[in-house]
Amino acid sequence: MIFHLNMSSETPIYVQLRNQIVLGIGRGDLLPGEALPTVRQLAEDIGVNNMTVNKAYQILKSEGYIEIDRRHGAKVAKHQKDDKEFEVYLKDKMELAAAEAKAHGIELTQFMDYCREAFGVNEEA
C-alpha cells in the first residue's frame, strides 16, 4: 500500500500513520495477514523516531487492526474485532458526522452517497 504523510500538518504523525493503515485495510489495499514494515524500517523511511511509529502500532494493535508478533513482526489482523465497544464507538462517530452534515444542509441521499463512496460501493445495492 502506498500512502502519504503530511509533515507540516497539525495532526500528529502517529495519528496520520494509524489513520492511513486503517484506510488501507478498509479499502483492501492491505490484506488480512499481510506483513507490515517493522517499527525501525518505517521510522527510517518516514524520518521520525521509533517511538512515533511504535505508538501508532500499539494503538492499531489495541484496536485490533494489526497483530504484533515478536518473531514475525507486525501483520494485518486476519479477523477484525467484532465487539460491542466498536459498535458504540462507530454509532457515536456516525451521529456526529450526520449532525455535522445536517448542520451544513446536506440531504440524507447525499450523505448516503458519501457513505457508499467511502465504502467503495458506487451504486445502490
Binding site: 500500500m1 502506498i2 504523510l5 507490515l36 514494515p37 524500517q41 527510517e44 523511511d45 524520518g47
Partner: peptide, 15 residues
C-alpha cells in the same frame, strides 16, 4: 510534494 510517501511493501523489503 510537501508530504512523505511510504510504500509499505517497499519498506518491508528494504533490509
Amino acid at each position: 510534494v510537501n508530504e512523505i510517501t511510504i510504500d509499505t511493501k517497499l519498506s518491508y523489503a528494504k533490509d
